[in-house]
Amino acid sequence: MADMTMRSAAPLTWTTRLRCLFNNDTARGYAFITPWLVGFLLFGLTPMLLTFYNSFTDSTLFKTGEWIGFKNYERLFTKDPTFQIVLNNMALYVAVSIPLVIGLSLFFALLLREQFVGNRVFRTIIYVPSLLVGAASAVLFRQLFSGGQLGLINQLLGLVGIAPLNWLNDSDRLWLAMAALIATNVWFLGGTTIIFLAGLHAIPQDYYEAARIDGAGSWKLFTRITLPLLSPTLVFNTIMVIIGQLQAFDMPLIFARGMANGFSSGGSPLGYKNSLAMFLTYIYERAFVKSEMGYASAVAVLVFLLTLALALFVLFTARRFTYFGDQERATR
C-alpha cells in the first residue's frame, strides 16, 4: 500500500517527508483513530484521572478533600459490612446472569437466522423492551414484579396455583428481590441477540456449502464454522455483557425505590435491607446520597479494575480460539 503512494510523491522535500510520514500503517492507523483519540484526551482522560485521585482522598460531592492514602480501600475491605453484602449480591447476580444472557441470546440468534414466517415479528418482540424510555420501563417492571395480586408475574403464578409473592419487599426471603432482578434480563436480550445475528450474517454462506459437501453434520458446522467465525462477535458480546451486568444500575435502582416520588428521593437505593445492593447503586448511594465522593471513587476504581481484568481475560482466552478474517492475532 505504501509504495503505491510513493510513486505520486511531489518534488518538494518537506512535502515528501510529510507524505512519507503519512504513508505507513502507523500514520494511517493514527489518522483513522484520531477522532476518538482527540475526544478521549479532551473529555475522557481528566474525569478518569480525577476519579483515581479522588479515591485516595476524603473528597465529598461538593469539596475536594485531603489525601488519605489507602484508607478508603482499607475501609472498603475491613470496615464496611454493606460492601460485603454488595459483593455477595454481585457474585450471585453475575454468576447467573452472564451465562443466562449470552446463552439465551446466542440461542435465539441461531433460531432467528433461519427463514420462517414470523421471524421479523419475533425479532421485534424481543427488542421492544429495550426501546422503552426510562420512566415507562420503571413503571412497567415495578408492575411486573409488584407484590400482591397487582403484580403480573404473581397473576401468572396464580394460574398455576402459587400464592402471590412479595418480590421486592419480602421480609424473610430477601433473595426474591435478586431473583426478580436476574429474571428481568430475559426482557433485555434484544440488543445482544441482534448483534449475534449481525455476526452470523457476516459468515459467508459458501463456507457452509463447502463443509456440507465434505459431509459435515449440523453440530460440526456449528463448532467448526459458526463458532470460530462468530468469535469476534462472541468476544464483543461477552465483554459487553460483563460490563453491563457488573455495572447494572437502572433496574436495581427502579426496584429498590418506590415510585411515589418518581426517581430521585425516598427509599434507600439499595433496597429493603440492602437486598438489591449492587456495585453501581452502592457507588450512587455513597456519592450522591451520602456525599462521600472519595469513598465512592474507591469503589468505582475497584469495579473498574475488576471489569477490566475480566475483559482482558476474555480477550486473551479468545485469542487462542478465535478466527479473524484477517488472520491476524496480534491484537488479542
Binding site: D25, R28, G44, P47, M48, F288, A296, A300, A311
Partner: peptide, 29 residues
C-alpha cells in the same frame, strides 16, 4: 477501521484504553 486494519505502534494499548473508557462507572465521572 483504523483499529481493525492497520498495524501501528501503541495500537494494542490504545485499544485497551478504548475498552477501559467504558468501564469506569459514570456516576463518579
Amino acid at each position: 477501521y483504523g483499529f481493525a486494519r492497520f498495524r501501528f505502534r501503541g495500537r494494542n494499548i490504545l485499544f485497551v484504553v478504548l475498552l477501559a473508557t467504558m468501564m469506569l462507572p459514570t456516576q463518579v465521572t
